[in-house]
């Protein structure tokens, strides 16, 4: 693998504004129920913004009987909708619910990491939309930062697929509530 493209997500900077989630819909014109990127609030009262993680060991790739998934040289996991028969095995296999089933087309689709944009030298649409810079795209083969972590509380088990995402946790704050 020449590269392992992935995301870095800073939970301390994320304000839960959902610009990334809707920018993805704007770029890819997906219907409402097909959510390639999702912003959710964790029980720890911070947000996660999660799409397909273009994993090192993609379970979708492994379970798909139609071999609809491929992993590109740059690490992006791609799905070929023409091959998909809609069996939805990948939905159960993926810990992050990244493949999304469209009842209208009877096909799966998912985040392709905006490779047409990246091939043209542009950042993914969700990354471009993030005003606070909480969400970034990185090449994990080159990435190193001691402050970054592999997971955060509330993020699914990373052992199964080794997702291409790194995190920055929330920092403690001083708060005075009315007593």
């Amino acid at each position: 693998m020449f590269k392992q493209l992935g995301y870095s997500f800073n939970a301390d900077d994320c304000i839960g504004c959902k610009a990334c989630e809707i920018a993805c819909k704007n770029e890819n014109q997906t219907p409402a129920h097909v959510r390639w990127r999702k912003v959710t609030k964790t029980s720890g009262d911070f947000f996660l913004s999660v799409s397909c993680n273009h994993c090192d060991n993609p379970e979708c790739f492994r379970v798909c009987p139609e071999r609809a998934f491929t992993k590109r040289q740059d690490g992006i996991v791609e799905i070929d909708e023409n091959r998909c028969t809609g069996c939805q095995l990948c939905v159960t296999a993926c810990p992050y619910s990244a493949p999304q089933f469209d009842p209208e087309t009877q096909k799966m689709s998912k985040c392709q990491m905006c490779y047409p944009r990246q091939d043209a030298g542009l950042p993914p649409a969700c990354v471009e939309a993030c005003t606070t810079g909480a969400l970034n795209h990185v090449d994990l083969n080159k990435f190193s930062d001691l402050e970054a972590t592999r997971t955060l509380p509330g993020f699914p088990n990373i052992k199964i697929t080794s997702p291409s995402i790194v995190f920055y946790p929330v920092k403690p704050r001083k708060r005075y509530f009315i007593k």
């Binding site: 959902k18 610009a19 809707i22 920018a23 819909k25 704007n26 770029e27 939309a129 005003t131």
Partner: peptide, 24 residues
């Protein structure tokens, strides 16, 4: 077919909010 933020705008600097990205 889609909207993007105008990078020449010195305040919004090339991005919109979620509502803005829903304009289509």
């Amino acid at each position: 077919i889609k909207v993007t933020g105008d990078p020449e705008h010195g305040y919004s600097k090339g991005s919109l909010c979620a509502k803005g990205y829903a304009f289509t």
